[in-house]
Write a protein that binds this DNA or RNA. Structure first.
Lengths: 215, 215
DNA sequence: ACGTGTGAAGTCGTTCACAGCG
DNA sequence: CGCTGTGAACGACTTCACACGT
């Protein structure tokens, strides 16, 4: 196996946008699309689209563009989005509830199949048909249910401990909502979602009133 | 006024991490810190820390490092985080509820002071002491309350419309949870939070099992 | 000595421009 | 002729290395 393609993070992110747009086009029965059209649907240049797709191979027909249906299918396959992903959610707080019930994620193939919280008072709760389980059973449940992705939605103080437990249980990708830097062994991926930091960025960006020089 | 510093996005993000760490150190009564220490607390190199800080000036003492307290104060001021920001939240769904009640954001100076939803059934609701208001009063409320930041937590179909209304009401920064590309006039900043895309990234990253070559 | 501030070098991603194929 | 695929130029961010101040 070759395995020689370290896909740039930015390309990966755009690729997901391409796929989303392709799926939309597919619903509208569009047959083919050019890199230019696909580009400005997601805010990228045509060259960028072609370069990004080139990470994985050649998919277009010169003089024509790309077949919407086949490109979508191919991308889904390459991006590992053609199956369902089983996800564990730790932290039955407000964010946790929002994520459990989010139709959005389920539609895209991410199924929250287990829900944990360290607070015994929450164990009686059931959200979106999912009972809150104690942390004690996390390892067993994750293994039995073949869970490979985890969402950490607990306060900062507990996040590293939760991460350790999830990793020990075989989870290989973590979506972390706690504003702390998680330490994980190689081979485990962590993506941080830091809403406070996003708002802080906005605060800074809007605080320096741009001189306003665009047409 | 000079205004000559277009701060790189990546630097800005790290700067927020530095500030967070500095505040933590301040609580632990640490007096000074070196770029190297600050760096590995947030996963950056010492050179990166110094370069980032150099965007705004010179803050360190050679041979010593940085004064935790003064650097934190200075950064807060530069990053426009020394005051409170008034935020409007549109969409009283699951994400909306999570954000209203998030202690996290309030502690960092972001106060959700107005909550809107287009569904009349939700108008009776009150979350975290905040009544859900109809969209009709959005413009007036935002102006009266001097709101400059907005959070869009509505379904994709309505997001652009909400964005337009917020912008018309004078809001200059948008945090967008809908998976659509918002069109806004220059001078308005948009940051997207796309949780499905984050999970999709994780899916891809964990699907290609790394060959495992690190020590 | 120690650690900052900063030019210089290097790396990575984007944009350009054009050859090549349908 | 249109549009892809791609080497080459370009630009931005990162890393290096060292002079300078304390």
């Amino acid at each position: 196996m070759p395995d020689p393609a370290p896909v740039p993070r930015a390309s990966l992110q755009r690729m997901l946008l391409y796929l989303r747009q392709l799926e939309r086009l597919g619903r509208e029965s569009v047959e083919t699309i050019s890199s230019a059209q696909l580009g400005d649907a997601v805010g990228a240049t045509s060259a960028q689209v072609r370069k990004d797709l080139a990470c994985f191979g050649q998919f277009g027909q010169r003089g024509v563009g790309y077949r919407v249906a086949t490109l979508a299918r191919t991308l889904r396959s390459i991006l590992a989005l053609d199956g369902a992903w089983r996800v564990a959610l730790v932290g039955a707080g407000n964010i946790g509830r929002a994520l459990c019930t989010a139709r959005n994620l389920r539609e895209r193939g991410f199924h929250v199949v287990a829900l944990f919280d360290s607070d015994p008072l929450k164990e009686s709760c059931t959200w979106a048909g999912l009972r809150v389980q104690p942390m004690r059973v996390l390892a067993r449940t994750c293994c039995e249910q073949q869970i490979t992705l985890g969402i950490i939605a607990v306060p900062s103080a507990g996040a590293q401990d939760v991460a350790d437990q999830l990793v020990a249980a075989g989870v290989r990708g973590l979506l972390n909502f706690a504003p702390v830097r998680l330490q994980v062994p190689p081979g485990v991926e962590v993506l941080d979602v830091d809403l406070a930091a996003q708002l802080q960025q906005l605060a800074f960006l809007t605080s320096r009133r741009p001189s306003g020089k665009e047409a």
